[in-house]
Design a protein around this nucleic acid. Structure first.
Length: 488
RNA sequence: GCUCCCAUCGUCUAGAGGCCUAGGACACUUCCCUUUCACGGAGGCGACGGCGAUUCGAAUUCGCCUGGGAGUACCA
């Protein structure tokens, strides 16, 4: 039973779910799925200042949208709850006391000013700063005196004592799931605070307690946590707990190789969704940042990826988040959507238009003929203005380079003349237009030039959806009116 | 500053001593298809950061250098 694989994602709700966190969540999820383990969600809302319910909801929604469903979490519960850190506050003191009793922790009465001075001194001497440990061997009398001054102690973890109890060398190692053997000289790690003077646990302590109590067996996270790992291993050992396996993923960088931030565009999963990215495409893309399919087929569902996933094969280097491939991939996913599904998904991006102008059939056809070039859903906004309203806005350039030409004028005159007699069904229009192009071709005018004239008059543009379909959707009256209007 | 991690095309990556004149995907580009844009199809451009060492043989092993990233809090 203790062999059960349990992984977790423990986001801090100080912002919307970041793509980096999403990728970490994904890799944990993939690992759990692959080996039949449990995926746990824990909310680390210790920092009340930056936490908000909106962010918590955003994290839930984003994870769900990505298909990363958790087996245990704040909402669904589980055997090792609560899964919200702020509700776990009363369980930490017990373990602090245990460490105190075992001699692996001690009270520290240093003030922020004193600590600051130590640090300055260290930087001045170009030394790496490590806490002086001056409070480690305080006598009871000294402690009483400090307490009488009104000082409230923080609790520090004694790196050296813990290390000596379990390791021969000050250099400790662990076998990382993705990076292999990792080591660190613990004499370079200062005795860090595990419980603040206000009684709340620090991150490095709380995670260990939470992960230990939640029986997390494998901790897969960003490599920015490597240095924390050594501290955490020592705490696990000091508590007599089983040390979990760790796996550290490379970071996701922006194209300029700096940390991905708002400056580079969207960073939260929800922002990508708002921009018109499909969550299926987003997870797929993010999975490819560090992982490669064994069969070379890159477009895959999360379940398919899970089948093929091996944590040891994940790349240990950082990767750059480039939009090019994401865009391509999103386009591929849009192509796979049924028209009915796409019609619904497109609606939020068509809010500036009055969809009631169109019958369902017209809307369906419009989507069918405009969906091809979409890479993100919001592209639809720019692709359809001419389907709405009576008139059309003609680009200046289209006016001068297309409509104003003598050829175009001839084409439009002939078009109006002939089209008013046509039966206005798409099928019939298709035939008629073919004949129409043929007539002009005989006069030496290329089919595309003929079409440009009509397209320019009817849509105001030189590019767009299939012309015949556009004519059919717009209806005879509007088409003829717009065509006439373009004739001088 | 100190410590740690990383290093194959512009980007994501395959590659675990000879199968590599380094493969794929995206991007870029040429051509084809075509009522435009796009999609699709067929090509092209394009990389083992540098220097040593080990070896008959290194992208693959080792060392140094360089470059990039991260951590150095009573933040998480």
């Amino acid at each position: 039973m203790s062999e059960e694989v349990r992984v977790r994602i423990a986001p801090s709700p100080s912002g919307n779910l970041h793509v980096g966190t999403a990728r970490t969540a994904l890799f944990n999820y993939l690992y759990a799925k692959k080996v039949g383990g449990k995926f746990v969600l824990r909310i680390e809302d210790t920092d009340a200042e930056r936490t908000s319910q909106a962010y918590i909801d955003n994290i839930f929604d984003s994870l769900k949208a990505l298909g990363l469903n958790w087996d245990e979490g704040p909402d669904v519960g589980g055997p090792y709850g609560p899964y919200t850190q702020s509700e776990r506050f009363d369980i930490y003191p017990k373990y602090v006391q245990e460490l105190l009793d075992k001699g692996f922790a001690y009270e520290c009465f240093c003030t922020p000013e004193e600590l600051e001075a130590e640090k300055e001194e260290a930087t001045k001497n170009k030394q790496a700063y490590v806490y002086s440990k001056k409070c480690e061997n305080l006598t009871e009398e000294e402690k009483e005196k400090l307490r009488a001054e009104g000082r409230k102690p923080a609790i520090r973890f004694s790196i050296d004592k813990a290390r000596k109890a379990f390791h021969d060398s000050p250099v400790i190692h662990f076998d990382d799931l993705v990076k292999g053997d990792l080591h660190q000289d613990t004499s370079l790690i200062g005795d860090f605070v595990i419980m603040k003077s206000n009684g709340s646990p620090t991150y490095n302590f709380a995670v260990v307690i939470d992960d230990m109590l939640m029986k997390i067996s494998h901790i897969i996270r960003g490599e920015d946590h490597i240095s924390n790992t050594f501290k955490q291993i020592l705490i696990y050992e000091a508590l007599g707990a089983k040390v979990p396996r760790f796996g550290h993923l490379g970071m996701i960088l922006a194209p300029d190789r700096s940390k991905l931030s708002k400056r580079h565009g969207a960073t939260a999963v929800s922002e990508f969704v708002e921009k018109g990215y499909l969550t299926d495409a987003l997870v797929n893309f993010v999975a490819l940042l560090g992982w490669a399919p064994s069969d070379g087929v890159e477009i895959k569902t999360v379940d398919e990826i899970a089948q093929d996933f091996r944590i040891g094969e994940v790349s240990s280097s950082n990767s750059v988040f480039e939009y090019d491939k994401l865009n391509w991939m999103n386009g591929q996913y849009i192509k796979k959507l049924s028209t009915e599904d796409l019609k619904e998904r497109l609606k939020p991006f068509l809010s500036q238009y009055d969809l009631s102008e169109l019958t369902d059939e017209q809307y369906t056809r419009m989507v069918e003929v405009t969906r091809e070039p979409l890479t993100i859903l919001s592209d639809i906004t720019d692709a359809v203005p001419y389907f709405f309203g009576k008139d059309v806005v003609v680009d200046d350039e289209v006016q001068t380079t297309v409509l104003d030409t003598e050829t175009s004028q001839d084409v439009l005159k002939a078009f109006v003349e002939q089209a008013k007699e046509w039966e206005w069904t798409e099928e019939n229009l298709h035939e008629k237009m073919e004949v129409f192009r043929g007539e002009f071709k005989e006069k030496g005018i290329k089919p595309k030039v003929t079409m440009w004239a009509i397209r320019g008059a009817v849509t105001g543009r030189t590019r767009g959806a299939d012309m015949t379909a556009v004519l059919a959707i717009l209806g005879k009256d509007r088409v003829l009116e717009r065509a006439k209007k373009a004739i001088k």
